[in-house]
Simulated scan of single mutants.
Amino acid sequence: MPRLGLNPDHLALAGAELADESGFEAVTISRVARRVGVQPASLYSHVDGSADLRDRVAMLVLGEMADAATSAIAGRSGRDALGAFADSYRDYAHRHPGRYEASHRRTSPSPRTVDEGRRHSTLSAALLRGYAVPEPEHVHAIRLLGSTIHGFVTLEFTGGFAHSAPAAEVSWDRIVDALDHLLRTWPTSSTDV
């Protein structure tokens, strides 16, 4: 019988909190069970094992990140929207390092996975409309934005910028300026496949 108050969403949140405290690899059935005060076997009434639990944490995180980005860009356009968009992801990563790590997990295919991924793509596409990047080029521009933002944050987390000047914040602002310039002058190609 499922324990009162426990449900998959509650366990995903407990897993996300544990990830922020101890890293995403700490999110296991036994650790989350300890955190919520039950025996590990009790969790199997709500999740299908550690992989399912981690997928649920990743979906929670993707939703939180999309919500933050949506709020950040509301009512903005151009460079202002781009800066708010990029900052929302970077700020989230700094506030929630374990959760952010979960966002990079390759999850099991499901309608919810597709929906959460689509929210991020839709947000990126909305941002791009402020730059008049042609719609056939959106996939390329979205990949550039994601690679740049997440690549920078990953290198920052691993200490890649810790041993040189200027501070990472200065480079971050320059990178957002460079992205803004590139999006305003986006090249198109007639040889797209």
Rank of each mutant, 00 (worst) to 15 (best):
F24K: 09
E25R: 14
A26K: 08
A26E: 11
V27D: 05
V27L: 09
V27I: 05
V27E: 05
S30L: 04
S30F: 04
S30N: 12
R31T: 10
R31M: 10
V32K: 13
V32A: 11
R34F: 08
V36K: 08
V38C: 10
Q39R: 13
Q39D: 14
S42G: 12
S42Y: 04
L43T: 07
L43I: 08
L43D: 03
H46I: 07
H46Y: 13
V47S: 06
V47P: 04
D48I: 00
D48A: 13
G49I: 07
S50E: 15
A51F: 01
L53F: 09
R54A: 03
V57H: 06
L60R: 15
V61C: 12
L62S: 07
G63E: 15
E64F: 09
E64R: 15
E64N: 08
M65Q: 09
D67M: 07
D67G: 15
D67T: 15
A69P: 04
A69V: 14
T70Y: 02
T70D: 10
S71R: 15
S71W: 04
S71A: 15
S71I: 07
A72Q: 11
A74W: 03
G75R: 08
G75C: 10
S77Y: 01
G78A: 05
G78V: 00
R79S: 10
A81E: 11
L82T: 00
A84I: 06
A84F: 07
F85D: 00
A86N: 01
A86S: 13
D87L: 06
D87K: 05
S88R: 07
Y89T: 09
R90E: 03
D91A: 15
Y92A: 12
Y92C: 11
A93L: 04
A93R: 09
A93G: 14
H94K: 12
R95D: 12
H96V: 01
H96E: 01
G98Y: 00
S103F: 07
S103P: 04
H104D: 07
R105Y: 12
R105H: 12
R105Q: 14
R106T: 13
T107I: 09
T107Y: 00
S108E: 13
S108Y: 03
P109A: 09
R112M: 08
R112G: 01
R112Y: 01
T113K: 04
E116Q: 14
R118H: 13
R118I: 02
R119D: 00
S121W: 08
T122P: 00
T122F: 05
S124D: 10
S124M: 12
A125D: 11
L128P: 06
R129N: 04
G130Q: 05
G130P: 03
Y131Q: 01
V133S: 11
P134V: 05
P134E: 08
E135H: 11
P136D: 12
E137L: 06
H138M: 05
V139E: 13
V139R: 14
A141I: 04
I142P: 03
